[in-house]
Write a protein that binds this DNA or RNA. Structure first.
Lengths: 191, 191
DNA sequence: CGCTGAATGTGACATAGGTCACCCGATGCG
DNA sequence: CGCATCGGGTGACCTATGTCACATTCAGCG
């Protein structure tokens, strides 16, 4: 499926746009391709885009001062990624985005997003619901982090994204679960 | 300040509505008063409202099967609270809301929220931004939970909400930080 | 081929935090 | 008044997980 069709079907799950409206909407997106390992947003960058993943997988993560990595999200096709704090507040990035595999994505500037939201009510509706879902998902993850142990979270992750295990290095899975690489290794070798 | 003025000023931080529009918007809210300890949303309830806090403090929390409590949010005046997962998905509540103090709030049904969002573009814009902020805050908290220890999170909380310490029982502060009551006690008595 | 550097497994040990048991003091209520 | 209840503090001990050190495997590459 090409980029345009993928985005169109993604929108159609939440709102219905006329073909003209969608064409106009789509015209604001810039396609980009990245290689595995490339950095899309690095710590300290000015952030003015968000990204819609077409192909491959990116991760959004934070590096602490002592260089420990914590992963907020793995973004697969039809997922969105950016440092939303930086994007909305204008501050410099504290959350980075890079490529776990070769990646194709569409880039939308924040200015264009706001323009489209102003011009097309249905677009604003779409972005409201997208963020709603993210908000609910983040709260679920907060509860999961607080209330269950690493093993449980690990099984949860496997259930939700079995594919991840094929291509995401284990140290990154660990950084998503909030445990050390060693602990993760012990978990799924049934200690 | 009365309810209407408080909500009006809250909206005005994000969007500008005409007086007529705001009056119409406001007419969909139901005022309610609750006593300290009262339950607004209980586990298993059908959820069709969200709440705008005018006075007092509510908490949103989850109880695990073995009755451990984990607090997602303390909502003070001008904050919103509900079980957003249940509200958006139509499922039964897994997140409860109850009153830490006597509380006054405004209640908005999900049906009315969606109606208002359809009818007034600026209202949809407002709710998009409200959720944006919540989404970013949730991600910050995720990182804080994953990357820092209980003492650090405790100090963070104190900095952000010094008032909380005056009236929220310590076991609930602990349930917010994701540690046991005993550990919290040891933390701020410098162990 | 053999070298190098990821990614991964695993043992030994350290430690944050949980759990349990018990205490105290304030508050409310029959 | 006397008792129960609740919030809170603290000691003893337990456990999950982090940390460090080292071994192994495998892919890419000169």
């Amino acid at each position: 499926m090409d980029a345009k069709e993928l985005l169109k079907q993604h929108l159609a799950k939440t709102v219905s746009l006329s073909d003209d409206e969608f064409d106009y909407f789509f015209s604001h997106f810039q396609p980009h391709a990245y290689k595995k390992g490339q950095v899309i947003i690095g710590a300290g960058d000015k952030v003015d885009c968000e990204y819609f993943v077409l192909e491959g997988c990116v991760k959004t993560f934070h590096l602490t001062d002592d260089l420990k990595m914590f992963i907020l999200q793995f973004a697969m096709p039809t997922w969105w990624a950016s440092d939303y704090n930086a994007l909305y507040s204008g501050q410099r990035a504290t959350v980075s985005v890079d490529c776990i595999t070769d990646v194709e994505l569409l880039c939308l500037t924040s200015a264009d997003r706001e323009k489209l939201c102003r011009e097309i009510h249905a677009v604003e509706h779409f972005f409201r619901w997208r963020t709603n879902k993210g908000f609910v998902a983040a709260h679920k993850r907060l509860l999961s982090l607080m209330s269950t142990d690493a093993k449980h979270r690990y099984e949860e992750l496997l259930r939700q994204y079995p594919q991840l295990y094929n291509f995401v290095p284990k140290n990154q899975i660990a950084a998503y679960l909030g445990v050390s690489r060693e602990t993760l290794s012990r978990l799924y070798h049934a200690r």
